[in-house]
Computed example of a mutant assay.
Amino acid sequence: MKGNTLNVMFFILKNKLLKNGEAPVVLRVTINGQRDEIRIQRSISVELWDNAKMRSKGRGRSSAELNMYLETLKDRIYVIHRNSVYDGERLTPKKILDILYAREGRHLVLKAMKECIDGWSASPGDLHPATLARYNRCCGLVETVIRDVYNKEDVAFSELDKKFITAFERYLKETCGLARNTAAKYLECFRKVLKVAQHKGWMEDGRCLEELGRLCVKEETFPSFLDWDELRTVMETDMPAGRLERVKDVFVFCGFTFVALTNVCLIINKLQTNNRGIGNGLETTYLHHFA
């Protein structure tokens, strides 16, 4: 019957390799010249892909799992198409993929995280630029761990579990070498995104939030303060450049007044934003370094 000729194929994007060096696998559905395609959130080494057979030619477990997954997708597509023929409905390739992946109601973690960050970036004043930068770094870290744990480019909120949260914390502390409190900041960033997802009804299971809440508890710190001799040493030290001398003056000012150096940085950034001509970018960078 015209309009019911179905073709399913898989291929890889050799020119768009992922950070792990593998090529993403793409599913393409064609019906009478109309086609639509989607990345299936799986990847493979280019040398292991058999383009003619549209499958992995590797002998390992990961190759066997990928090939089984490809066969499952193909079978499900033919079932969807066959049911539409029985019902007298003509499906388009896009509609088939929508049914296959439930794309109309599927909410992905990285996609939602990037949308949240874009929304916060579009509202200046809601978050400090340094905080936005932390969210962006957190997004990159989450992307890496998703690939390691699930072997996918992105996952739905419903797929998150305690195993992923544990792997994320371990990656921050062991691979990235972050201290407990620094790691807790990134875990809190991710927790905030999950709270947004839960509020919108994208994630019903709250166990991940509970686990993140437990891991986000910071260790109590006891900051040390300069004594008079140490502060006098700073005051008597000659700096090699004028801008560093001004940074030193601000540091000494904070030492005498107990004003937090981070607050001074915020004031300078605000004055720069208002074009008051106070300080310059390099001086602010040095202040943030000391802060």
Rank of each mutant, 00 (worst) to 15 (best):
S63D: 11
L97M: 15
C208E: 10
T257A: 06
R82D: 01
E211W: 04
V142F: 04
R214G: 08
L215I: 00
E104H: 15
M203R: 14
V149I: 11
N136V: 02
E283C: 02
T257I: 07
S56G: 13
V149A: 05
E211M: 14
K218M: 12
L194R: 03
P129M: 08
L17S: 03
L271D: 07
E65K: 13
N4P: 03
P240D: 04
L70T: 08
I268V: 12
N7S: 10
V79D: 12
S158Q: 13
E174C: 05
L271P: 04
C254A: 12
W202G: 03
G177D: 02
S84P: 03
M203G: 09
R180A: 05
G206Q: 13
A291D: 08
A112W: 04
L172T: 02
E159L: 04
N280G: 11
L271C: 13
H288E: 09
V85W: 01
E174Y: 00
A52N: 15
R170C: 00
L108M: 15
N181C: 07
P93N: 11
F253R: 03
N136A: 07
R191D: 01
R106Y: 11
E104I: 11
G213N: 15
D205L: 05
D148A: 03
K95N: 12
L17G: 02
Y171N: 03
R55L: 14
M1R: 11
A260Q: 06
K53D: 14
T221E: 15
K19G: 02
A52Y: 14
I267V: 13
N51I: 15
D205S: 14
R243W: 11
L209Y: 08
K74W: 07
V79H: 10
H128M: 09
I117Y: 02
F190A: 07
K173Y: 03
I38P: 01
T5R: 05
G213Y: 13
V46W: 11
R137Q: 08
F256P: 03
R103E: 12
E47V: 15
L6A: 04
C216M: 12
A291N: 07
V46S: 15
I117V: 12
F225Q: 12
A130D: 08
E230W: 08
V250P: 02
F10Y: 00
V8G: 04
V149F: 08
P124V: 08
V109E: 10
I278T: 04
L160R: 09
S63W: 00
A167L: 00
T182Y: 09
L261N: 05
K162S: 11
I278G: 00
T285H: 06
F258V: 05
Y69R: 10
A102E: 14
K200S: 12
F157I: 12
T72F: 09
R82M: 00
